[in-house]
């Protein structure tokens, strides 16, 4: 079982790295980009019996800082 956790800065939290990537894209001529947000993907290999609830607890306790970040979990 695998889980894929996406962690993004919350809407409204300034993402200076995303802004820098946007500026670089504009500099390269990709004018069609209105905004860039940069996040992380964390892949977990899970033992049998470790389910989404456990992954959610991992997100709350370590993988995301919910003061500034939101997360979503994909189980596969």
């Amino acid at each position: 079982m695998k889980a894929r956790v996406h962690v993004m800065l919350k809407d409204g939290v300034l993402d200076p790295q995303g802004e820098a990537v946007k500026h670089a894209l504009h500099g390269m001529g990709f004018d069609g980009v209105d905004g860039v947000r940069q996040g992380k993907v964390i892949e977990l290999d899970l033992e049998d019996g470790t389910g989404e609830d456990a992954v959610r607890e991992m997100c709350e306790k370590l993988l995301a800082n919910t003061v500034i970040e939101s997360y979503s979990i994909e189980m596969a």
């Binding site: 800065l9 300034l14 200076p16 790295q17 820098a20 800082n65 003061v67 500034i68």
Partner: peptide
Amino acid sequence: ALLRNAGL
């Protein structure tokens, strides 16, 4: 929380 410096 402490974010990346605004000027990167």
